[in-house]
Amino acid sequence: MQDQKLAKQLMKKSKTARYERFGHLLSLSALLLIMAIVLGIIIFIATKGLSTFFRDNISFKDFFTGVIWNPGTKTPSGQQAVGALPMIVGSFLVTILAAIVSTPFAIGTAVYMTEISPKRGAKILQPVTELLVGIPSVVYGFIGLSVVVPFVRNTFGGSGFGILSGTFVLFVMILPTIVSMTVDSLKAVPKYYRQASLALGATKWQTIWKVVLRAATPGILTAIVFGMARAFGEALAVQMVIGNAALMPHNLVSPASTLTSVLTAGMGNTVMGSLQNDALWSLALVLLIMSLLFNLMVHFIGRRGAFKK
């Protein structure tokens, strides 16, 4: 029967079908590899970071509330000196201060770029911010070291190293990130919002303040959180200007340290498996958890504020 011959031809698995299976599996395995890497990072660092508590029997309370960091020695009161509070406070301080300083500048610039002078924004500010997002952090650190630290020293006294210098450097570092993301969210506000507001007799400023910024708030918040995540995780630029003294910061110009600065400075000087080393991995774990929390915040904000088109 001719029908059956044709049916046979059509049911034979072609070479093309085999290509398809192969390609599907190949691309899936690339994706699963990335997935495995992410899981690997979390598991490796969690295991290492938790051994301080479960192998070296340091209590969470000592770690998170202690103020003396010198793993391997004891504090005057007899506990292990693994108090990470100075670094945690240092990290949060520089992050929050940098975000507070950056935010008004970033929003102002973004509003200028989208609402006031879009032409000049697109021509000058856009490429410049893109370039600045790409400047390596060591370059920021180097400029911090040769410009900001002397400036702080001459203006406020002290050595110049400390939270204030760190804040300055991070402010400039996260500014382009927040600007470009804020610009995106302002651009996403539909044009007719503005037209409707202006048509009702509102001034340009009222339109920007009460309509555009209000509508873009979730996007702007996301931008700020992104900037904070970058600041919190930044290692070298901060490490170069903060002074690297694992002490509770007394004021903004006394040498201090952050989680990342202690990690970069210390990891090379400890022996794997020692308490000194484990304690550093615990700091890395704190860093990892904070990064996950920032991610969660972005998700949370994003879910509440997406534009319905």
Binding site: Q2, D3, L6, A7, Q9, L10, M11, K12, K13, S14, T16, A17, E20
Partner: peptide, 17 residues
């Protein structure tokens, strides 16, 4: 049905179709 063969079944090689 394509020349009498039902091509809307899982066994059929869709690329040849």
């Amino acid at each position: 049905l394509y020349q009498g063969v039902d091509i809307n079944q899982p066994k059929i090689d869709v690329y040849e179709v």
